[in-house]
Design a protein around this nucleic acid. Structure first.
Length: 303
DNA sequence: AGTATTTGACCACT
DNA sequence: AGTGGTCAAATACT
């Protein structure tokens, strides 16, 4: 991360070309709504990846915005300690069932005293609203929603569960995207968090790679981002415009959001991961080549 | 007093 | 009927 890096033009072109091809496929050969949704997600992944590659070059010598929200932001509002995340595993992205809006799924391993406290270090403010014993698991699952659910109509949720194999490890499943202003603040450039290793091992069958929550995109990109969806015709109604537009939003559009997505959460939630966009740094940028061969889609990255 | 968490009950889905 | 997810009243905390 220290050495200056220039984005790989070919890689960017590759990503954009794939995005274009997928868009054409969507138009020419529309499939089921679910398949179309998947395609849309992949298209956006391509664009996001291209943007990130560009950003890597543009911000050469500068730290990237944090892929993970800065730890510690949450601790003032949640009575949790300061667990140290030992490892991060991006596990089974998009493993949601039909109609399920899982946007990311990952495991964290903690070294806190009780092994429970690492599940709230993602920088967002979560409020626990339920706990449930899950069949076949030793530990109950805790359900959290964004603290700004009521005030800002932010419907992001997650559930956290300790794994049977290793109680120190928790599995976190995120649903929904943050639309709260707090999320936007997290996306602002700031000193990068202490380096953590993130092992990203998407499962073979679910090769949908979640693009980032838009409010976590680099602000310098957010301000300049412009994705033309005019060619998408009818599907432009289902693809959230990256440019805030009253007509695209069924939800709240905060004035201070330079970049916002529509609120589809309850029914047609658009699946963006909250923490999984910046897969690569300058030294290990990867091609997210799901379409070529999803089974081979595998990468590992240091954030 | 205001806010967050806990927990039993309820609901939707299969 | 069983299960997972959510609600909401009670409780705890600051």
């Amino acid at each position: 991360m220290e050495s200056a890096c220039v984005y790989d033009e070919n890689k960017v072109l590759h990503e954009l070309t794939q995005g274009k091809q997928m868009t054409e496929q969507l138009i020419v050969n529309p499939s089921s709504a679910q398949a179309n949704d998947l395609l849309i997600q992949m298209i956006l992944s391509k664009y996001y990846n291209a943007l990130h590659l560009l950003n890597s070059g543009l911000s050469a010598g500068q730290p990237l915005p944090p892929a993970l929200p800065a730890p510690g932001l949450l601790e003032s509002s949640m009575s949790f300690g300061s667990p140290r995340i030992e490892a991060f595993e991006y596990d089974q992205p998009f493993s949601g069932q039909q109609g399920e809006n899982i946007i990311s799924k990952k495991r964290k391993r903690c070294t806190s005293d009780n092994g429970l406290e690492c599940d709230n270090d993602d920088g967002y403010n979560w409020r626990k609203y339920g706990q449930k014993d899950i069949l076949g698991t030793k530990f109950p699952r805790s359900y959290y929603r964004c603290s700004y659910r009521n005030t800002q109509k932010c419907f992001a949720t997650k559930h956290v569960q300790r794994t049977d194999e290793d109680p120190a490890e928790v599995e976190i499943v995120y649903k929904g995207i943050h639309t709260c202003t707090h999320a936007a603040q997290l996306a602002s450039p700031q000193p990068p968090p202490s380096p953590e290793k993130h092992e990203i091992t998407p499962t073979h069958h679910h090769h949908q790679l979640s693009p980032p929550s838009p409010d976590e995109m680099p602000s310098n990109l957010r301000t300049n981002l412009n994705v033309n969806t005019s060619d998408l015709g009818g599907i432009s109604d289902t693809v959230p415009s990256l440019i805030p537009s009253p007509s695209t939003s069924s939800g709240v559009m905060e004035d201070n959001h330079q970049f916002q997505f529509p609120c589809y959460y309850d029914s047609e939630l658009f699946p963006f991961t909250s923490e999984s966009f910046f897969f690569s740094d300058c030294g290990s940028s990867q091609s997210l080549d799901f379409l070529a061969d999803p089974a081979d889609f595998e990468f590992e990255s240091l954030f």
